[in-house]
Amino acid sequence: MQDTLQTLVSGLSLGAVYALVAMGFSLVYRTMGLVNFAHADIAMIGAYAASTFYLTAKLPFAVAMVTAIVVTGAIGLVIERVLRPLENKDFDLMLIGTIGFGIVLQAVAILIWGTTGRAVPSPLHAAPLDIFGIRVRTYDLLVMAVAAIAVVALAFFLSRTKRGAAMQAVAMDHEAATAVGINVGRSNALAFAIGAGLAALAGGLVGPMLYVDASLGGALGIKGFAAAMLGGFGSIQGAVVGGVAIGVLDSYAAGHFQGYSVLVTFLVFTVAIMIRPTGIFGERTVSRA
C-alpha cells in the first residue's frame, strides 16, 4: 500500500509535466488542426534555455523560466508562419513539416549546447516532506502547483476572454470566424506561441527532474503526445487526465519492470488507445460521405 502510494505520488509530478506538454499540443491541435511533432523539441529547447538562464546567466529560476517561455514562444511563431500555407489543407504534409522542424531544433540544440547534456540542480533546497510515511520532494510539489496554475490560467483565458473565445471559434469553424471579423492567422499564431510557451514551461520544470540533453524532447514529447491522445485529442481536461495517467503508468512501470518501463508504457498505451481511439474526453466525429 505504502509502495503503491509512493509510486502514485512520484508519478504525479512527472504526470504534471506530461500534462503541460499535452496541453500545449492539444491547444495547437484544437485551434489549427495541426499535429505539431516539433512540440517535443520545443520543450527540449525550453529546458536548455531555462537551464542556461538559470545556471550560466545566474538568473533566478522563475525569471529564467519566463525568459525561456518567451524565447520558445518566438520559435513557435516562426514555425506557424512557415507552415501557414499548409493549414487546413494537407494534414499529413503538415505533420511531416513539423517533424522537419524537430530535426532542425535538435541540430540547433547540439550546435549551441553540445552533445553532453547537463544536470540542473533543484531550485528548492528544502528537505523532502514526510506525509504519512510517503516521501514527497518539495520540488515535485512546486511542479504540480505550477502545472495547476497553468491549467487554470489557460482555462480562464479560453472561457473568459474575448481572444480566448475567438481562438476556440477559429478552431470550430474558421470560415465563420473570418466572417465575424476574427483574424484567423493571428489567432493561430497566438495559439502556437502559447503552445510553445507551455512546452517551454514543461521543459524548464522537468530540467531538475531529468537530465537535460538533446534527446530530452524525444522522451518527454512522445509521452506528452500519448497523454494528449489518451485524454482525447484537443481537450484541455483530457490533457490533464491523460498526463497524470501516463505519469502514473510510467512510474508504476519503472517500479515493476525497471529497464523495460518505456516498452511496457507504450504497450499498455497502445492497447488502451485501441480500445478507445478517441481517448477519454475525445469527441466522436462523424465521418461524412
Binding site: V82, L83, I96, G97, I99, G100, F101, I103, A107
Partner: peptide
C-alpha cells in the same frame, strides 16, 4: 550536426 540541420531545413522547404 550541420548536415542534420540541413536535412531538417530541406524537409520543411520540400513540404511547403
Amino acid at each position: 550536426t550541420y548536415a542534420q540541420l540541413g536535412y531538417g531545413v530541406v524537409v520543411v522547404l520540400m513540404v511547403v
